[in-house]
Simulated scan of single mutants.
Amino acid sequence: MAGVGHKSHGKSHDMGLHAEQLAGRTQQRFFSAAEEENFTYPWAYEVDFDKTAEFDAEEMDSSAINLKIRELMQSGHGTITVKNPRAKHGVGVGILNRLNLKFEGSLGYFGCGLVDGPNIHISGRVGWSCAENMMAGKVVIDKNAGSTFGAAIRGGDLVCRGDVGSRTGIDQKGGTIIVGGRTGAFSGFMMQRGRMIICGDASKNLGDSMYDGTIYVGGQVEDLGVDCVPGEMNDTELKWLKTKLGMYGIEPACGIENLKKFVSGKQLWNYDNLEPAEKKLVL
């Protein structure tokens, strides 16, 4: 990464992403709507996306479903369909491989967590903490999602076409979370990096205690959390938003150009150094 730490006029600079003060190794953020750059593990299975398989999970428990997915990957299947998952918990987790995976039905809590690389489509709903600690790839849910959607996500695209519960993107560290409908209270809580796009309304305490990152909202915001403030949209962001939402055929009712932007006010960055009276003002 030549030039890291030096002044540049790239897209990330245009979007004001180089004002942060980070200790240790410089960590710059670069925008690519498609995010096609994916790393693979040296021990990952060699799969062929044209080699397809499907199985019925109605009578299987979560462990058996996950084991079956791995067995099919090991045999080279790159496109796998799981029928009747019946909202079982902890399904589709820990997949560190390129894979096209489809669930025909709903998943329970902690579905598709700890994944790095697969493209996953869920035709139903998901419970709490879907795609927790996701590293890379895509997870798309056709219906609604529970609370802590995308907790601590680090990369990739996590998309829910419906509504989601509270604390969406809690401790988000990267990647993009897209919600086609509404989100609950404390969405973006302690957000550190990444982007969140809420096409509908946002409930109380949006972006509470967020350290960095960006939240876009198309509907009404009930109120902002501590240290979350309105930001100004620029042309580079608008272009990125159109490209990213266009990938999934999603558009807020207000129009992409009318999305509202929210960022960190950065008043909590040096919280320990504030005087007691100043801390009261911040909180």
Rank of each mutant, 00 (worst) to 15 (best):
V4Y: 11
V4G: 14
H6C: 15
D14Q: 14
L22N: 02
R29T: 13
R29I: 06
F30S: 02
E37R: 13
F39R: 11
Y41A: 12
A44L: 03
F49C: 10
D56F: 07
D61F: 13
S62N: 10
N66S: 04
E71A: 05
E71G: 06
S75R: 15
H77A: 10
H77G: 10
H77K: 12
K83S: 03
H89Y: 05
G90W: 14
G92I: 09
G94W: 02
L96Y: 15
R98W: 08
S106T: 13
S106M: 08
F110E: 10
G117H: 01
G117E: 05
P118T: 07
N119K: 14
G124F: 12
G124E: 02
S129H: 07
C130W: 00
M135I: 10
A136H: 07
T148C: 10
G150L: 09
G150P: 06
R154K: 13
V159Y: 04
R161C: 00
V164K: 00
G169C: 09
D171S: 14
K173Y: 09
G174Y: 02
G175K: 05
G180F: 00
R182P: 01
A185R: 09
S187P: 11
G188R: 05
F189P: 04
Q192G: 11
R195F: 08
M196W: 00
C199A: 02
S203Q: 13
S203W: 11
N205I: 03
L206C: 05
G207D: 08
S209F: 15
M210W: 03
T214F: 04
Q220V: 13
E222L: 09
L224A: 15
L224I: 15
G225I: 01
G231L: 14
E232N: 14
E232K: 15
M233W: 08
K239R: 08
W240A: 01
G246C: 01
E251Y: 00
C254Q: 09
N270G: 08
D272P: 11
L274K: 11
L281R: 13
